[in-house]
Nucleic acid binder design. Structure first.
Length: 465
DNA sequence: CGCCCCTCCTGTAGAGGAGGGGCGGTGCGCTACT
């Protein structure tokens, strides 16, 4: 019966792992937390459930671009009454949509939008059959600092006629899963936890003494290796610098970071998907909602601050199931940088000053969190909150450091953080005898033999110096 | 950590060096200005 619906609406004859279980639980009006690997068709879970329940669906999504993308995809699939209620709409369009909310089967919003009292109230009046929290790890990863409106979902979701909720994510530690259930007021949840190991992604780690050596290594790697690939760095500036350097080698490469305009970001993403760009040099802003299945390399010029983040970023490779390489480049100095990027929790002094209305220089993200704490907690509770947060962040950072330093299997170390075991495999990682060269496809220059290619590259290198 | 920006200093005019200090990454929706 479910399969017939699947065939009817999507033209597929069978479900992917997890989909059917999630949909069945939702049809039985259970709340669901689903940890499904990327590329397993998470969106089908709510699209089909909505159809079968014949009730509208509310989808809470972290990014405007992601909403836009989903809306377009659904329209292509033949879903017509779909809308993203966000600031991309003009004032007139917004008013129009708001006046006709009952017309839509699928409504996408950001957590911030729900905090608008008028809109939040209007949405609660709709007879939703399902509420979806897409990329639900954002609750835990972003809610506690720079997007506290994720935590405020807690209040919004407390209403009598609340329909079942499904939280969807591809990455989650037990702490993240606990945060998700807590914030979404889910007491009894059906949990679907798929294994998160991606065997086809080979793990490599490489140590250097200076940052310059890393840059040289990347130049050598990218100029001789066929993409597509992503290079993650720790700052906007570095993405620009590295991009400029790689362009000297006539590599089709572009930078991507949060400081660029939406138009530029969208264009670069599209060019990468269309293979007009071979490599992207990016900050952590790049990746969510990028559906490119043949990414062969993910290089971390600087390690991600958390292993959850690292897992997300390398997980963008090898969606086609073919081999890919994920390489992290390390120097001793990186550990300091990472700690800074990670450790942004307000100090007790800052909390006290904020509660006493004493003005104090604080970062924007700290200001957001303090505002949230002030509205919801007593001073002493707020101090404890920040202390706990700091301890947790520190734990996460220690795990990252351990990944950089360990002499054990990288895959086992990574999966241990997610409390999952790994099955031993050949050429698993550089600690288990992986020969990186076996997984690189050499860039082929037409009209050039291997020998003349070497000469051409050497000559180019000399001229550039 | 390493970088970049700002200020101060010199010695009477202008630029450049030293040294202190702050910042680096993820995004939504507004609002008040050009």
């Amino acid at each position: 019966m479910l399969e017939r619906a699947l065939q009817h609406y999507f033209g597929f004859s069978s479900f992917r792992p997890g989909q059917e279980e999630v949909i069945r639980a939702l049809l039985a009006n259970e709340d669901v937390v689903a940890l499904l690997p990327t590329g397993t068709g998470k969106s089908l879970c709510y699209q089909l459930t909505g159809r079968l329940k014949e009730a509208p669906v509310l989808i809470i999504s972290p990014l405007l671009s992601l909403m836009q993308d989903q809306v377009n995809q659904m329209k292509k699939l033949g879903f017509k009454r779909v809308v993203a209620l966000n600031s991309f709409l003009t004032r007139e369009q917004f008013t129009e949509v708001l006046a006709n909310l009952a017309h839509y089967d699928y409504i996408f919003v950001s957590p911030e939008m729900l905090q608008n009292v008028n809109i939040g109230r209007r949405l609660k009046q709709l007879p939703f059959g399902l509420i979806v929290v897409d990329e639900a790890h954002c609750i835990s990863e972003w809610g506690h600092d720079f997007r506290p409106d994720y935590l405020r979902l807690n209040t919004w979701l407390k209403y009598d006629s609340r329909p079942p909720i499904v939280a969807l994510t591809a990455t989650a530690t037990s702490k993240v899963l606990a945060d998700i259930k807590d914030v979404l007021c889910i007491k009894e949840a059906s949990m679907y936890l798929a294994p998160i190991d991606r065997k086809e992604i080979r793990l490599a780690r490489q140590w250097f003494t200076t940052a310059q050596e890393k840059v040289n290594w990347i130049e050598e790697y990218v100029s001789t290796t066929l993409g597509p690939g992503i290079i993650y760095t720790s700052s906007r500036k570095k993405t620009e610098q590295l991009t400029a350097q790689l362009r000297k080698w006539r590599i089709k490469v572009a930078a991507y970071h949060g400081g660029m305009t939406n138009e530029d970001r969208q264009l670069i993403q599209e060019q990468f998907l269309a293979a007009e760009l071979e490599w992207i040099v990016a900050t952590s802003a790049f990746g969510m909602g990028v559906h490119k299945n043949n990414i062969r390399h993910v290089i971390h010029e600087t390690m991600s601050p958390t292993l959850s983040g690292y897992m997300q970023e390398i997980g963008r490779a090898a969606r086609d199931g073919q081999d890919a390489l994920a390489t992290v480049l390390c120097t001793e100095q990186d550990k300091e940088v990472l700690q800074f990027l990670h450790d942004t929790v307000p100090t007790e002094e800052m909390v006290r000053a904020y509660y006493a209305h004493v003005s104090l220089a604080i970062s924007d993200s700290n200001a957001e969190l303090l505002k949230y704490l002030y509205a919801n907690y007593e001073l002493s509770q707020a101090i404890v909150y920040c202390q706990t947060l700091k301890v947790e962040k520190n734990k996460a950072f220690q795990a990252t450091k351990n990944y950089m330093e360990t002499s054990k299997c990288l895959r086992a170390t990574l999966l241990q953080y997610f409390e999952q075991a790994t099955v031993p495999q050949q050429a698993c990682c550089t600690q288990c005898g992986l020969n990186v060269e076996d997984y690189k496809e050499v860039r082929k220059f037409t009209n050039l033999s291997k020998q003349s290619l070497d000469w051409a590259l050497r000559l180019q290198q000399m001229l550039l110096k």
